[in-house]
Amino acid sequence: MMQITDIEWSTTEKKIAQAALEKAKEREINALLATVRQQASGIQEFNDLWHLHDFLSARRYDLDGKYDSRNATVIFSLAGLVKEGWLKITELEGLDREKITKVSAMTRMI
């Protein structure tokens, strides 16, 4: 049985996966920007500024690892993004049926 990390990706599939990752990242960043604008407008005290800083630090840490497009981890990245709602399974159209099935199954496991 082939391990998830041993999956082969065609050039077309790599492009589809990369485009999906970029689309999801753009959505998440736009949502983050809206949240930051809202939080920044509510800053009243010095401590509020540090709360915003802490929030941004945590989000940066999360975002830095989330959009990994390496062949060995892209299935996990896509599944996580589908589960979080940043990506729809239908946006992976063009990937091999087995890969879409794995992404879909993983959204229920992770």
Rank of each mutant, 00 (worst) to 15 (best):
E26G: 06
G42E: 14
S57M: 10
T101K: 10
D54L: 09
A105C: 01
E22W: 03
M2Y: 06
T11P: 04
K99N: 02
R70W: 03
V82H: 05
K25T: 00
A31N: 15
G42D: 04
I100K: 09
K99W: 03
L78S: 01
M1A: 13
E98R: 15
I43Q: 06
L78T: 01
H51Y: 14
R27P: 00
T12Y: 12
L21F: 03
E93L: 05
V82S: 02
G65H: 11
E26I: 08
T90I: 07
F46L: 09
S41D: 13
K14N: 08
L92C: 01
G42W: 01
W9C: 06
T5L: 11
R97Y: 04
L32P: 00
L21S: 04
M1K: 13
I110P: 04
M109K: 08
Q3C: 03
V74I: 13
I7A: 10
E91F: 04
G80A: 06
S10G: 14
I110F: 12
W50V: 11
D68L: 03
L78V: 04
K83R: 12
I16R: 02
L92D: 01
L32M: 11
F46V: 10
T107P: 03
G94P: 09
E13N: 14
F46G: 00
L56F: 01
M2D: 13
Q44K: 15
D54E: 11
A17Q: 04
L87R: 04
K66P: 00
D48H: 13
D64Y: 14
G80W: 01
Q38C: 01
S77Q: 09
L49V: 11
K15C: 07
I29H: 14
W50I: 12
S77F: 06
R108Y: 13
R97Q: 10
G94M: 09
